[in-house]
């Protein structure tokens, strides 16, 4: 198969040497997801409890990772922030995958004018940087998670739809598709039962890689103060809030969410690329 996933060059250079890196990343992701799921029970303090008298205190027994400029517990904010920080990209990936697969399959299967229309339209989206599109939509609809998620979902859709289209084009040529046509199955049935399951692993691998990028884009939006509302704990927002702390010579509450973002993105990339490689090597 000559179909390659879309990888941004910066992160694609991280190659998996042995399986230990993959396992490490998978483990890390499992921990992050668990933390996000169990946040209400795991966070030691109320993530929004302000204690100005204790602002910028270092790590202590009560606050193992210290507190930020408003005296809020960094550990609690990290754990609770994992929820929004993962939920946003999940929305982006779900939206872009579902819509992208529908668009790509329709274009690849039908071909002709529908293919031209859908392909040109999605390529038009490529001309807009995703972040710019998101900023535009946020500036129209105001703060909140939904607007940037849909905007980024639109921006990521062409990656998925282009990949799906090329996969469907290759799959459509396989003789078993003709065999099902001769049997009297409708095009929709063949797509749903035979084409999509066969291309799903590749698309899901791409979506996993996309998850990392969406996370970093959403964190960037939060950092610009455009994503989540001010009080919601979120990693990107924490970096933004931590700016003053860095100027005060106390960088911990800004560095930790940075590290969380970077590590999660890298982990998603390593896992996604590993899955993509595994799919590519799979004998059919």
């Amino acid at each position: 198969m000559t179909i390659a996933l879309v990888r941004r060059p910066g992160l694609a250079r991280i190659r998996t040497r042995g399986s230990w890196l993959y396992l490490l990343c998978l483990g890390f992701l499992a921990v992050v997801v668990l933390l996000a799921l169990l946040a209400p029970w795991l966070s030691p303090h109320d993530p929004n409890a302000v204690d100005l008298g204790n602002a910028l205190a270092g790590p202590s027994a009560a606050h193992p990772l210290g507190v930020d400029g408003s005296g809020r517990d960094t550990a609690s904010r990290l754990i609770t922030g994992a929820r929004t920080s993962l939920l946003g990209p999940l929305g982006v990936v779900l939206f872009s995958t579902v819509a992208g697969v529908i668009v790509g399959t329709a274009a690849g299967w039908r071909g002709g004018w529908l293919d031209s229309l859908l392909s040109r339209t999605t390529e038009l989206v490529f001309a807009f940087p995703g972040l710019l599109l998101a900023i535009l939509i946020v500036s129209i609809y105001g703060e909140g998670l939904i607007a940037p998620v849909i905007a980024l979902g639109m921006a990521y859709l062409p990656y998925v739809s282009r990949l799906t289209r090329s996969l469907v084009l290759a799959e459509r040529e396989r003789p078993f598709v003709e065999a099902y046509q001769v049997q009297g199955h409708s095009g929709l049935q063949i797509c749903l039962r035979h084409v999509l399951p066969n291309i799903a692993p590749v698309v899901l691998a791409q979506s996993t890689v996309n998850f990392g990028y969406a996370l970093i884009d959403l964190a960037g939006l939060s950092f610009l103060g455009l994503g989540v509302p001010a009080l919601t704990p979120d990693w990107g927002r924490m970096v933004f809030d931590g700016e003053s702390a860095i100027q005060a010579g106390y960088p911990l509450c800004a560095i930790l969410p940075c590290a969380a973002i970077v590590l999660t993105v890298v982990a998603f990339n390593v896992v996604g690329e590993r899955w993509a490689d595994r799919v590519a090597r799979r004998d059919r």
Partner: peptide, 27 residues
């Protein structure tokens, strides 16, 4: 239409050249 499609299928069926390609590998 579905009826017409099935009728056509019941008129003529086909066995393809390459049995390695004419079956869905997942089914």
């Amino acid at each position: 239409g579905r009826t017409q499609r099935l009728e056509r299928a019941r008129e003529v069926q086909m066995v393809f050249q390459d049995p390695f390609l004419s079956l869905d590998p997942r089914v």
